[in-house]
């Protein structure tokens, strides 16, 4: 049970770090000049990602991680406590 907890954790972490890489190193640096051809309002898109967008995504990534891991913790570690409570009922 514990090793599958760790495996699920690793999958979550790897996929979130993939998003982290794409929004900063990808959109903000590697493909930034290409994205600059698109404009949202006064922002060139690549410029926006490197000075604004990547930071917003970082915040979203951490809170997604918090949400997913809390769910995972409950599934693997709180279930025994819950069943104890049920037994008492």
């Amino acid at each position: 049970m514990k090793s599958s907890y760790w495996k699920s954790n690793l999958i979550i972490v790897t996929s979130l770090l993939f998003v982290w890489f794409i929004v900063s190193y990808g959109f903000g640096i590697i493909w930034s000049d290409e994205l600059d051809n698109l404009k949202i309002g006064g922002f060139k898109l690549g410029f926006w990602f490197s000075q604004q967008g990547s930071i917003y995504f970082f915040v979203i990534i951490i809170f997604t991680y918090v949400y997913l891991l809390n769910k995972l913790d409950k599934k693997y570690f709180n279930s025994s406590e819950k069943s104890e409570i049920k037994e008492k009922d």
């Binding site: 972490v13 979130l16 982290w20 900063s24 490197s50 990547s54 970082f58 990534i61 951490i62 991680y65």
Partner: peptide, 15 residues
């Protein structure tokens, strides 16, 4: 500086 000094928190939180 903007990406570098914020993106590290993702690493901190996840790793």
């Amino acid at each position: 500086y903007l990406m570098g000094w914020t993106g590290g928190y993702v690493l901190l939180a996840l790793l």
